[in-house]
Design a protein around this nucleic acid. Structure first.
Lengths: 341, 341
DNA sequence: TTGTACGCGTTATCAT
DNA sequence: ATGATAACGCGTACAA
């Protein structure tokens, strides 16, 4: 049961290694009969080619890697499935590479490009602006998907929504419902990514409505909890309630946070939306299934995922150069926001 | 910016390749000065070692691979994090390998063992009994985690709960609340895994209570929807309601399915639990945060995840042989089940 | 159609 | 401390 190599298979069959190789890789120049014999003994002895050796030798490979940071993020799960479907549909193979929170996704991409002779890369999650110089080391096309990297400018390929605009749209809707004191459950104060953009949208909407920005209504994420988690929403809303501050509506940075906030309200004996309105962001399935359903901004995830792969292949095949592609999101009016008076 | 190899680095520094290799891998036998020089030029020219070549040459590697089937399953996300933490804590490196629905996890494991010179493997999800013969081809220790592979017997290492027993426990509790007509939102009729076991537990509990098993109350999964999804729960419960069948409680095969069922009840103008009770299985975070919170069976995920890694390392280091390890789950009494009279 | 021999980029074993 | 060189397992030009 020990390590059996292509040489031993060749010896076992009484043929040369190249014949075995041809059999494995469906080469045309091989006699059907010998091919069968080789495949049989491969079966019999459970020979499995060593991928490292293959990758080392190959000069190209028709594989696309998807690097995902934050694999437990439910926002990503459907997207990954679309990636997989679209990539295999193009007869390419698909590698999903998980990136730890503390790892640098670009470093991993650079390694992987060499190791697997990649044709293209998709980044899902991660990728803040300070990775810019490293990106230059990638010699193959890549697309940054659903991460709003405004700082990177349009010289990199990306598919995203305009987080600032969509956040503004939602908050404007809340104001239109008569809400003037809207608490924000925000990301970290140091956030440079979507957390910052959604905050900006919030401020812009208030300003346009002539409502002063009240810092005491902004709750920054608990640093000891995952920012986009229900637990975080629960803790923040609880603290907000206990502070006795006055508000009629909560805008949470994501749907999960919104659901956590709802739970805190329920636990405090309040009703949603009768006593307090709640809105989220992203448009996850659970936002629709929650009771009450959550008013939110739905990012067109499927379309964005498809567009990501389309753009990537367009770049691979030279039909297109890197560009920033911005999608419109949709305001979903659920049952969690009440119109005042 | 093209492929730069160790040879060119050596030439650039005016040293031999072995010296460069020593610098990279922190070998002791190298002059600190030359080491610095080498590392500098590596920086300067962005040299990145080729992993395929490394793996090919190495004979061992201190890495553990986790093969996960069904990466979008929220039940797995927390578990994976524990794996990662525990594995790196042991100074091993951790590779998360995604397995497509149609792929064979054991085939991939066999490849990966050779390719990366693995020390151990964890299977998360997948792995029904017909993979048995192939498992013999794995020459390194592996643990099957949170998949209840009763058919495989105890000759394989696994960490799980007793799905039949826990399902029985929950249904018995429901009966104890006075429910006699309990609908089951089940997996596929062909299911040979946890779906079947949970169904068995359901039947056993009814039998013990002297309640006849009513086939018309068992709704098999919609084959066009993911079995363990909210969408599926919604569709099944809707169909059940429209059929006009009589029931006071719904037991869903998982928490997600339970939440979908709740939505269908709400949409039909019913209240939970006043008009109909609902119970789930797994104990996901959302079961607790949902409104009403869902009565469910909570699998001790963290403990099971830790036990998985502990068992794996015990096997790697020869302190333990393969064994089946069964954990007790906990009945979580939420707000979604009402006691009749 | 088939086999031989070389090289992919790296690490490890020798000498030096 | 350092450098030449032999593997690692495979694909492929080239010769047969």
């Amino acid at each position: 049961m020990e390590q059996i190599t292509i040489k031993e298979v060749a010896k076992l069959c009484g043929v040369g290694v190249s014949t075995v190789s041809r059999a494995i890789n469906n080469h045309p120049d091989i006699n059907e009969e010998t091919k069968q014999k080789v495949l049989e003994t491969i079966q019999k002895y459970n020979y499995v080619p060593n991928n490292s050796a293959r990758n080392l030798k190959r000069s190209d490979s028709n594989t696309i890697a998807v690097l995902i940071k934050g694999i437990s993020n439910p926002f990503f799960s459907e997207i990954v499935q679309v990636f997989e479907r679209e990539i295999t549909k193009q007869k390419y193979s698909f590698v999903l590479q998980h990136v730890e929170e503390f790892e640098d996704e670009v470093d991993i991409a650079i390694q992987l490009e060499k190791e697997k002779r990649l044709k293209g890369i998709v980044f899902l999650g991660g990728l803040s602006y300070h990775t810019e110089k490293k990106l230059k080391q990638l010699t193959i096309p890549f697309v940054i998907s659903t991460v709003d990297v405004t700082e990177l400018g349009s010289e990199y390929a990306s598919v995203t929504v305009d987080n600032t605009k969509e956040s503004r749209k939602l908050v404007d809707y809340l104001c239109g419902c008569g809400h003037k004191r809207i608490a924000l459950l925000a990301a970290s104060q140091k956030d440079e990514s979507i957390g910052k953009l959604r905050l900006t949208g919030y401020r812009q909407a208030l300003e346009a409505r002539g409502i002063p920005y009240d810092e005491s209504l902004v709750m920054w994420t608990k640093e000891n909890l995952p920012t986009y988690s229900m637990e975080n929403g629960y803790a923040l809303a609880k603290e907000l309630l206990e502070s006795g501050r006055d508000f009629t509506c909560i805008f949470a940075i994501s749907d999960s946070v919104a659901i956590g906030a709802c739970k805190a309200l329920f636990d405090a004996g309040k009703r949603v939306p009768e006593d307090c309105s709640v809105a989220g962001f992203d448009g996850l399935g659970i936002a629709e299934f929650y009771q009450p359903s959550i008013t939110t901004i739905r990012q067109p995830r499927m379309e964005m995922a498809e567009a990501t792969i389309r753009l990537l292949f367009d770049m691979i095949e030279g039909r297109e150069t890197a560009k920033r592609q911005v999608y419109d999101a949709e305001l979903i009016i659920g049952q969690s926001v009440r119109t005042l008076e």
